[in-house]
Amino acid sequence: MDVSTRAVITAAVAALVAVAAFLGQFPATAHLGELPVVGMALVLTLVLAIGWPVLLELPSVLGSAVVIALGGAGAVIAVTATRGQPFLRELPVVVALAVLLAFVNELARQDGRLRLVESVTGTVTGVLVATAAAGWVAAGRAPGGTSLVVCGAVALFLGSAASAVRLGGWTGAVVTSLGAVLAGGAAGAVMPSMELLPGALIGLATGILVAALHVLFDRLPALDRRLASFAVIVLPVSVSGILVYVVGRVLVG
């Protein structure tokens, strides 16, 4: 799976997040509430958990995948069950428990615990990026929640689509960021409870994120494996969840 294909699929996943946010607004699906967004967040964490240990070539693939899946799904469930702000107040507890599970996973290894530090750090990093997907649920509950989620998802969609064009270097990063800014600003201008400037700033944040992740991961040898490619595909969408929530809280309220 080449770089352009992964970028296009990432854009499609971002579009699904926007659709999930909209489902709660239609009369026919209003009874679903935030469940579509919660479901998307859970899918992101599980796909990331399956592919992350393969992407980093961790020594205990199954154990690391289980720890990341439990941490990510636990974060989404914890945020969903939280009533009243701050919506992320239980997230540190979930992350702390997942870190403990990462050490338990190392104790359970029967392979001599080779590459111990690499295994622990890789697993904990996977937990952090998986739990970030819970930010989409929190963003949906913030003031102007649906508009905030849609704005972030649309910016991520166009930023990811722009990164599919193989421009390389700073030119590619600028085009990716500019595309996300334009998309975020346009979405912010038309969505209720949003404005052009907050939308553009959300777009800038997501665009820089997509460009940075492109530089960090898209040349790893492990991407020849399908599961590793899946992790890279959903990674920008997962991490953008917490990013959109934080930026939205600062700029929208």
Rank of each mutant, 00 (worst) to 15 (best):
V237T: 13
L116W: 04
M191Q: 14
S193V: 10
V246I: 14
G184M: 03
S177R: 10
A212L: 12
I233M: 13
V137H: 04
G140S: 10
A132F: 08
A187D: 06
A187R: 05
A161S: 12
T123Q: 00
L116A: 08
A173R: 14
L223W: 01
R226N: 00
A161I: 10
R249P: 05
V239G: 04
A205Y: 04
V246G: 07
V150C: 01
V181I: 15
V210G: 04
F157A: 15
V250S: 12
F157D: 08
V247C: 00
A162T: 13
A133P: 06
P221D: 13
V190C: 09
V244S: 10
L178K: 07
R166Q: 14
D224K: 09
V165T: 13
M194S: 09
V150F: 05
V210I: 15
D224R: 15
T171A: 14
G122R: 00
A189H: 13
A189K: 10
P143W: 02
S240K: 02
R113N: 09
V117N: 10
T123P: 07
V127C: 03
A134P: 09
V150H: 02
Y245N: 14
R219V: 11
A189N: 09
P221W: 03
G169H: 08
G126K: 02
S193D: 15
V181Q: 08
R226A: 02
P192S: 11
G159F: 01
G145P: 09
A155M: 03
V129R: 03
W170H: 12
S193W: 12
L213N: 06
S160E: 07
S177L: 15
V239M: 07
L216C: 08
S238E: 10
M191T: 08
V190K: 07
A187E: 00
G144R: 10
G169A: 14
V137R: 05
G179P: 06
G199D: 04
L197S: 11
